[in-house]
Amino acid sequence: MEDEEYTGGIEKKIIYVNRRAPHGTVYALESLETVLIGAAFDQDVTMLFLDDGVFQLKKDQAPEALEFKNFSKTYRALEMYDVEKLFVEQESLAERGLAQDDLVVDVELVARKDVGALINDQDVVLSF
């Protein structure tokens, strides 16, 4: 299943909206899983990190002591899956005392006032 090729011939713009901190719930990990599986479908993928979702990209995560997978490293590998549009909302970072340097991967910053337009440019919204 994980290797299936999509031959339906449709290409859509799919945005993954990530708004929750990692580890407290499973959603951050599952969003990433879906993006990785979805890569086989050759769609136009955007990942958006809002609110506590910005913590998913925080450097220096060490959940191993809790026997959790450290999936934060995987965000750096997304490029190999042709997932290159990673957007982080500027205000979400600032509200949490974070800066772009605190993140594991290069992202594009988006202002809060432009988030609605970014979402409205998409065909499908998957929220986690």
């Binding site: 708004r19 609110d51 609605g116 409205n120 919204v125």
Partner: peptide, 26 residues
């Protein structure tokens, strides 16, 4: 190109509503 934003949490318990309203597009 408008979006239907669906909310399911009380604004008296969670910030979700205010977070959504801050990102609405025309």
């Amino acid at each position: 190109m408008s979006t239907l934003n669906v909310l399911n949490k009380s604004p008296f318990e969670k910030k979700t509503m205010e977070q959504c309203l801050a990102r609405l597009a025309d």
